[in-house]
């Protein structure tokens, strides 16, 4: 919106045409209430000096910010026109400066890639390269292409269109809200239209993943570890705009990991998972092996490995059922279970 046009717009009219600007006025402590029929220019012209000083209002900065904000929000509504389908990693350097030995790695929507390697081997750096869509300008000199092209700087560093969403078992909920209010807040901040449907969908999926059911009235900070993780995964899969999900160690998360991955993939996410859990690693289509700060090799999950996965999953199921028995106060008879 042109600044001069904006200045001549009545505050109340602006709230009607651009509803989110009302919060913007409120967040900037602008005392507009009762003055909605004034144009923005007149409103500030007659604003009491003491109020300006008291609320730390800088009129010029506020108006410029308002113009920027309207611009930003309008890009926010249309920016989903390009879906991100592929991520391509081009080789860079190991920590000691030798080049990485692969041509390129292409990851497609709906694929699951595991990242394995000892602690400190360079996993975080790879994840950061992907997060910032490195363009030969990070310490590894790797290049990350999205949909086959390098991103423009404004795309790489846009806070509202972040490429990557992250999940890890160190993450906790910190807000003082019930499950429903929390989902409502997130959905509102994303400005989705079918909010109630979205909330219901996430809530149902989260309960589907969690070992123990929870209600919409539960404060999010009171959820168990497994329930929190389930809600985080369902919420990230369905409501987060980021096309790529980085998962860092969800081994002991107390949720149905297979269902969790299926949910993420079914929502068309590109899933990268840093893990040492054989079940999770083998669920991946490929494994990226990290060593000495660089990508050492890429292993494609073989048929034999898939067969092993079946056995591992049976073992895992046994563990799960024993866990459930314990939870419900039953006795465990080992031989029978095996």
């Amino acid at each position: 919106m042109d600044k001069n046009i904006l200045l001549q717009t009545k505050i109340g009219d602006l709230f009607v045409t651009h509803p989110y600007t009302k919060d913007f006025f409120t967040d900037h402590l602008i005392p507009y209430i009762g003055k909605e029929n004034k144009t923005i220019e007149d409103f500030f012209k007659y604003l009491d000096l003491e109020i300006i000083e008291d609320k730390a209002i800088n009129i010029e900065l506020f108006i410029n910010s308002l113009v920027e904000y309207i611009e930003l929000m309008s890009t926010y509504f249309v920016s989903e026109k390009e879906t991100k389908n592929t991520v391509t990693i081009y080789p860079g350097l190991h920590k000691n400066g030798t080049p990485e030995n692969f041509d390129f790695i292409e990851i497609t929507k709906g694929e699951i890639i595991s990242i394995v390697g000892p602690t400190g081997s360079g996993k975080s750096r790879l994840l950061a390269d992907i997060e910032w869509a490195a363009n030969g300008d990070t310490p590894t000199k790797r290049k990350i292409l999205i949909n086959g092209r390098t991103l423009e700087p404004h795309e790489r560093f846009s806070a509202s269109n972040k490429l990557v969403a992250q999940l890890s078992q160190n993450m906790n909920f910190v807000m003082d809200l019930s499950v429903y209010d929390f989902l409502d807040l997130h959905a509102s901040s994303r400005m989705v239209e079918d909010k109630e449907d979205m909330i219901k969908k996430i809530f149902d999926k989260a309960n589907h993943l969690a070992g123990e059911q929870f209600s919409k009235d539960t404060p999010i900070t009171e959820l168990s570890g497994g329930q929190s993780r389930a809600l985080m995964i369902a919420d990230t899969a369905i409501l987060s705009k980021s096309p790529i999900i980085l998962i860092d160690e969800i081994e002991n998360a107390g949720i149905d990991r297979k269902k969790a991955l299926e949910l993420l993939v079914s929502e068309d996410k590109i899933v990268l998972m840093s893990t040492h859990d054989p079940i999770l690693a083998l669920m991946g289509d490929k494994r990226i092996v990290i060593k000495n700060g660089g990508i050492d090799k890429i292993i494609i999950t073989t048929k034999e490995e898939r067969n092993i996965l079946g056995k591992l999953e049976e073992l895992d199921k046994t563990m799960m059922s024993m866990r459930n028995k314990l939870r419900h106060g039953e006795k465990i008879i080992f031989e029978e279970e095996l």
């Binding site: 913007f24 967040d27 920027e68 806070a159 160190n170 993450m171 906790n172 985080m232 987060s240």
Partner: peptide, 23 residues
């Protein structure tokens, strides 16, 4: 690294609404 993805997104939005110009 210690809060959920959703909380990060909401917090970022709140920062953006106070300072839309900032990186």
């Amino acid at each position: 690294d210690i809060v959920s993805q959703a909380e990060r997104e909401v917090f970022t939005m709140k920062v953006q609404s106070v300072n839309p110009k900032a990186t």
